[in-house]
């Protein structure tokens, strides 16, 4: 068994998913302590360039029609073959729609231990410690990975995606796939999400407005911030009640439950009915003129200010940063 750390690269419709970079960053930081190489595993068709900006030393690349787009059956067959042959220290897969399909099947098929919801991997002594987050973020679990090959499903948040990018293109290593016949699963087609309707539950950044927005005419202020941040606007009950936003944008007990990476609550008091809908958000920032508003108990960061004053300035800052990036 080598000390190499494998990263199963995820891609859909020619786009590499961000989790791949997060895992590359994790692999890189481990490799520095543990020794061994960072190796990407890329399955696809004519997809060899997809891994060019990934910070891995080399990429095991399989080019097959059956692998052009993600297919659980084909991918797990191939990965089983690769992992059996390569015996890496760890194989990292995303805690995603793709990675979770594969990890369990591989664990049982190959008899390999599996850890999921992993946020961080830390080299400790001659071992590797994992830190996973379960139960809606309420519980952290720590343990040591065995010294034999193990599988890890990684969540984002422990590593920055940027740390997994690199300008050096990795070496491509071809691999002969096992026969891919009699597959039980086939991808018929993709269905794109409708453009008009925004599903706020899928957004990573939400800018939420409450009564503090005061008038419908002020909504564009929130919309501009949302756009600058690459997110969407949602609202608490009073705003939807007034008809200023559609009910599909309502967050709360009677509306949608959301768990974005960032939830910016503008002029929202924080009544339990609303908080219920967004309390699982990774980071909550609240801006309200009332220092006693209950939202400040739900938020991580708070600002006592009038959103109508703060919003334009905030939007400016956000735009600046994005331009630079």
């Amino acid at each position: 068994m080598s000390q190499d750390i494998c990263v199963v690269i995820e891609h859909l419709q020619g786009h590499v998913q961000e989790i791949s970079y997060v895992m590359a960053a994790a692999a890189r930081s481990l490799c520095e302590s543990v020794g061994g190489k960072c190796i990407g595993i890329l399955l696809g068709r004519g997809a060899q360039d997809l891994a060019n900006d990934l910070d891995v030393d080399s990429v095991i690349y399989l080019d097959e029609p059956a692998l052009a787009e993600y297919n659980p059956d084909a991918y797990q067959l191939v990965l089983a073959a690769i992992i059996s042959e390569w015996h890496p220290r760890l194989a990292l897969l995303g805690q995603t729609s793709i990675g979770t399909d594969l990890a369990g099947m591989l664990s049982m098929r190959l008899g390999l231990p599996l850890i999921s919801h992993c946020q961080r991997l830390v080299a400790e002594g001659d071992g590797i410690k994992f830190i996973s987050q379960i139960c809606g973020g309420r519980i952290l679990a720590e343990g040591r990975l065995p010294s034999s090959t193990a599988l890890v499903n990684m969540v984002p948040g422990g590593y920055k995606a940027d740390a997994g990018r690199s300008t050096r293109s990795p070496e491509i290593m071809p691999f002969a796939p096992p026969p891919l016949v009699d597959l039980h699963i086939s991808l018929k087609r993709y269905i794109q999400p409708p453009k008009e309707d925004v599903d706020i539950s899928l957004e990573r950044i939400l800018v939420a407005v409450g009564r503090g927005i005061q008038r419908k005419d002020n909504l564009p202020l929130a919309e501009e911030l949302a756009e600058a941040l690459g997110g969407a606007v949602c609202a608490s009950r009073p705003v939807v009640d007034q008809g200023w936003l559609q009910p599909t944008r309502l967050v709360g007990k009677s509306g949608m439950k959301v768990a974005p990476d960032v939830y910016i609550a503008l002029g929202i008091s924080g009544a339990p009915e609303h908080v219920e809908g967004m309390s699982d958000s990774h980071l909550i920032i609240a801006i309200n003129t009332d220092p006693a508003a209950p939202i400040f108990s739900a938020a991580r960061y708070g600002v006592e200010a009038d959103i109508l004053d703060l919003l334009p300035v905030l939007t400016e800052q956000a735009k600046k940063i994005r331009e630079v990036a």
Partner: peptide
């Protein structure tokens, strides 16, 4: 228990907030 309050001028607050977002790799 309670949010960390950010204070200052609108500019200062905005800068700090964007920093927070960057730290979390959101932007």
């Amino acid at each position: 228990e309670r949010a960390t309050m950010i204070e200052g001028t609108a500019e200062e607050i905005a800068v700090r907030l964007i920093e927070v977002l960057k730290e979390l790799d959101v932007l």
